[in-house]
């Protein structure tokens, strides 16, 4: 579950995939997750840090995490 290395992210939450030319807009939380993934953090560590800071249950976060990863996969933003 690693973000492709050449993916460009911006502070405003924009994502650019140079391999396809596609641009994306991430919601603030999605942008935060992408930054952490890009920095090489492990998913478990990222989730733990989100749980500590956000008003969300572990089960809800896990469902939403899986959904986000499915989106990233569909958009070809993850290392396969």
């Amino acid at each position: 579950m690693k973000l492709k290395k050449n993916i460009a992210t911006s502070e405003a939450g924009f994502v650019f995939n140079p391999a396809t030319g596609d641009s994306f807009a991430a919601s603030p939380l999605a942008a935060e997750i992408l930054e952490l993934l890009k920095a090489g953090q492990a998913p478990a560590a990222i989730q733990a840090s989100l749980l500590a800071r956000y008003e969300v249950s572990a089960s809800q976060l896990q469902r939403d995490w899986d959904d986000l990863m499915a989106q990233l996969h569909q958009f070809q933003l993850l290392e396969s």
């Binding site: 911006s10 405003a12 939450g13 924009f14 650019f16 030319g21 641009s23 807009a25």
Partner: peptide, 11 residues
């Protein structure tokens, strides 16, 4: 540049 496109399409 793609950043131009991101700004008009995203914001």
């Amino acid at each position: 540049d793609y950043t131009d496109f991101q700004r008009i399409a995203g914001i």
